[in-house]
Design a binder for these strands. Structure first.
Lengths: 230, 230
DNA sequence: AGGGCTACTTGAACATGTTCAAAAACTTGG
DNA sequence: CCAAGTTTTTGAACATGTTCAAGTAGCCCT
């Protein structure tokens, strides 16, 4: 992230432009955090950053894109926070719980306005939806974390289930996030307790697939998921 | 719903007012369907209905409230559509599949703009969220349907699971709706196939709770749900 | 240095959801 | 039927996200 006086040859973005971009983004995020997404107007962001409104739109296609940029930041922070956990822990439960709790910790400062972000998650027309084409890279990165969670762990699973597991765990994370967004309890106790109790259950469930009866149904579930994926 | 020339004593609403309200709502719904939610402006609705913008706001607190009103309508239609199914079918699979497919059928004309509606589902600050305080009546009504699905069926379940089942099935419906909203396949084939294949699996899963090992984990899952509910 | 190119910046104009004070229409008690 | 009160209706004003034509600044080539 060095700023030089030379033109940045990649893209067409210059060092100065990059600086302005960062200024606008950091100002926006601070204001989102301090007074919420809804109460922060584009004019206010531009004013506070000392640029014109149009300039903000030069770098960010819309107000929602500012949120998207924040989300990318969050994902990066999460990836960092998760590394030591994946180094240290070997059991599936510890790895999975660690990853989910790390998310809660990283995202905590933004809990109040996170709801606004995940509003777009359910909107299939928004390019910011985690299921959209355009979010594919971020989604892949998220799934990759759970691939590591599964691979480095002590889980032994049938091949078909093992192949789908990372995506399933990512979906579980989405569900936790949805729960988290709605959690109004002090210190987010309910979400924390959900994670701490649900993960061991998932672990047990997964290990149950050794039983022939359970394995049969697990195979069918995996088959359904594969059939129904776009 | 008789319209008389006498003042409606309840509330303070008159017959004429009710007529205007309906006019605005039906106009809005038609336009939502025809050109989508986003492209339908409040001015256009008012213009088409032959009233002023302010008048629309007299009856509906916001544009989203117009959608909420539509949702209520949908729920009512679904309840009606479901009745013959619950009369005729006795097996859990048939009942559950019927109820879910009935939803798809009732909601189909609005598929394109439904996404906008369920955007609000993830927003904890919106009173229109299905999880919010204000949606409690609609949510209860929805859960009630699944209570009937379970009670009238041939399922035999442990008491604790049986008690939580309606709410769990309602959650499943929410998941199906989320999937449906994102489904771009022709004739919504993917969602239909999801329902047709997932319900039998759920059936099998539920019956597996007779096995002691599975029953143990099922009990724990139910315990977790109860603990984590607000 | 100057011309030309690109990147950047501006601010006014626009679109649209929302509010509100005032007017109109209606109802009711006398 | 009138006056007072209530409900309904209006339309202009407002707030805010977004667009865009025009201007500015920096860089490079000759």
């Amino acid at each position: 992230m060095e700023v030089t006086t030379l033109t940045d040859v990649t893209d067409g973005a210059t060092a100065k432009g990059e600086q302005t971009r960062e200024l606008i983004l950091s100002t926006a995020l601070r204001m989102f955090r301090e007074q919420g997404y809804g109460k922060t107007t584009m004019r206010a962001i531009a004013g506070e950053a000392g640029v014109s409104v149009g300039n903000a739109y030069y770098y960010f296609g819309s107000k929602e894109h500012l949120m998207q940029a924040y989300y990318d930041l969050l994902v990066a922070q999460h990836r960092e926070a998760v590394e030591p956990i994946l180094q240290a822990e070997k059991s599936f439960t510890a790895r999975m719980t660690g990853v989910l709790l790390a998310w809660l910790e990283v995202a905590a400062p933004y809990h109040e306005f996170a709801g606004t972000f995940f509003k777009t998650a359910a909107d299939p027309n928004s390019p910011l939806s985690p299921f959209s084409e355009q979010s594919a890279p971020a989604r892949e990165a998220g799934i990759e974390i759970f691939r590591q969670v599964a691979e480095g762990s002590d889980l032994k699973l049938p091949a078909d289930l093992r192949a789908e597991l990372p995506e399933l765990l990512w979906l579980l994370e989405m569900a936790v996030v949805l729960f988290w967004v709605h959690d109004k309890s002090p210190d987010l106790r309910r979400t924390t307790s959900l994670v701490n109790r649900a993960v061991p259950l998932v672990d047990r469930l997964l290990r149950l697939t050794r039983l022939p009866v359970v394995r049969g149904i697990a195979t069918d579930i995996v088959g359904l998921i594969k059939a129904v994926k776009p």
